[in-house]
Design a protein around this nucleic acid. Structure first.
Lengths: 127, 127
DNA sequence: CTAGATATATCGAAACTTGATATATTCTTC
DNA sequence: GAAGAATATATCAAGTTTCGATATATCTAG
């Protein structure tokens, strides 16, 4: 299991939100599912991150009342906090992705020079 | 300018040392040069990391006296601490690279799905 | 003598990490 | 209707990491 550092978490969460608004719990499940369980972003990592994103204006938020099917119309349902990527967030994500690609290619430059490379021509995606 | 987190720093430093022994200052310059100045690993990041590597047995160390050209044979020259990748370090690096590739491919899965992808075939190195 | 490069190393405030805890609702099963 | 799992948000606290600032000292160029 690969644990995501905040830098990576931010990239992933922003990427998920680029596909449409979502909320903490759903994002968490989404990340676990889409990474085959390799990534896990738990509540204590997720909510401080989302709060930071909101504080920095990268996302906007709104609350939704989750009504139970056939529930009392007067009942206060469970609350969901939706996060929507802002224009600033989109720009930020684009830069972040660019930086991520740069990091990858440069990192590869270092890694490929090592004698630990077992002369594999394939880039490991088939592993 | 990308600042290397310790995880990345460790991977890069280990990779550099896989090509042969080196010392803190040289590694720092090496990283800056080979990344076109995009990466920077400063002294306050480098030395604690190298100490940790040594403590974990991934590298072995030895001191070298750096004599000035035409200096007094009695003078105590500047000292250089050389770091050599150990067998354990080599194994560790191989695992690390594997993990790095895994991280990359999964991360790519998230990033490639974003609408921020400007259908660029080139990988941004020409930017 | 001065300034800048070389060389190693620690300090400390801020930020980050993460299991644990808290709170409350909704769904499923018996 | 009780129990337990899943949904949903959020904070705490103890530990680790980060990184500019600082300290120390030598070497080189002007």
């Amino acid at each position: 299991m690969l644990k995501l550092k905040q830098d990576h978490s931010e990239l992933v969460v922003l990427s998920v939100l680029a596909e449409g608004p979502s909320y903490g719990y759903a994002i968490s499940k989404d990340i676990a599912a889409r990474s085959d369980g390799h990534f896990k972003l738990t509540a204590s990592g997720m909510y401080p991150l989302l709060t930071k994103l909101e504080k920095n204006g990268l996302v906007t938020t709104s609350w939704e009342e989750v009504k139970a099917s056939g529930s009392d119309p007067d009942s206060n349902g469970r609350r969901r906090k939706w996060y929507t990527l802002s224009a600033k967030g989109h720009k930020h994500l684009t830069k972040r992705i660019e930086l991520h690609r740069q990091l990858q290619s440069i990192l590869d430059g270092f890694v490929q020079g090592t004698s630990s490379e077992q002369s594999e021509t394939q880039t490991g995606l088939a592993g």
